[in-house]
Each structure stands twice: as C-alpha cells, then as structure tokens.
Amino acid sequence: MASDSPPPTAEEIAYYDCLKKQGVAIVYTDYGAPRVDKSKPANDEAHKTCAPMLPPPPKPQPATPAQIAAAQKESACLRAEGISWYPDPDPVTAQIDDRRGTPEQWNALKRDHLDALKKCRPER
C-alpha cells in the first residue's frame, strides 16, 4: 500500500531506537516508519528518558472546509453510534487528537465498533 507519509527521519529513528532500548514495544508501519505498539502497556519513564531526542512535530496543514465538515460529521456520527468519548476534530486541521481517549478506548473502537466505523466512514 502506498503512503503519502515521508520516510522516517534520522531523529525519529533515533528516538524510537531509544524507546526500544528502554523496553518499549515498537511496530513498523507498511512504509517502514517506527511507532509505539499501543496494544502494550505504556512506559512513561521511557518516554521521559527519550523525550530530548524527539524531533519537533511538523507544522499542521490547514484542512479544507470540506475536510473539516467531513471530520465533524464523522465525529458526530460515531458519538450517535454510542462512542460517547470520541473527540471533535481540530477546527483548523480536521485531525483527531488521539490523546483524547485512552489506549483501551482506541483499541476497543477498532475491535468492537467496526459497524459504526463503516457506517460513519463510508469512503474509507
């Protein structure tokens, strides 16, 4: 599967290598980018230890009005389907802040609410 995401930077690789050395489980996306395995328990100490290595986040790109409207509709739909904690999208970028909601909630969303996701995200 192709991705629009750029390859991981040297700083990102160093950060995730640091986390791995601290015992954090790392998984790799289809395009080779390292990510924390969110199905495993969080390790706050490792993140504190490695935080100085974390590159600054890229500046978010503003979304189009249509993208913002679609993201708002999706959030409202998911809440109407019983996922009451699902956050509203950012009003500028249309991104969902995955820090809102627990890892358990995000895992349950993908595991237990596939019908709601299909209904609310028909284009995906």
Rank of each mutant, 00 (worst) to 15 (best):
I68C: 02
Q22N: 11
A69D: 12
C18Q: 03
R35T: 11
T9Q: 08
R100M: 14
A33F: 08
P34E: 09
A94Q: 04
S75C: 01
Q95E: 13
Y16N: 05
A80K: 14
C50K: 03
R35S: 07
T29E: 12
A71H: 06
R99C: 03
I96H: 02
C120G: 05
L114I: 06
I26A: 04
E81K: 14
A71D: 03
D17W: 00
E12V: 15
A2M: 00
Q67M: 10
Q22W: 01
A66T: 08
P56T: 04
I13T: 14
A66D: 15
R99V: 05
P62C: 02
P89W: 09
T49V: 15
D115W: 01
A116M: 04
D98Q: 09
H47T: 14
D17H: 03
Q67Y: 08
M1R: 13
P87T: 00
P34C: 10
R124M: 12
A46I: 05
K48Y: 04
Q105F: 11
T29C: 03
P7D: 03
Y15E: 01
R121C: 10
P56D: 03
V24D: 00
D44L: 14
Q95F: 07
S39N: 14
C120F: 07
D115K: 15
Y16A: 01
R79E: 08
S84R: 12
I68L: 15
K59E: 15
A10V: 13
P60I: 08
W85C: 10
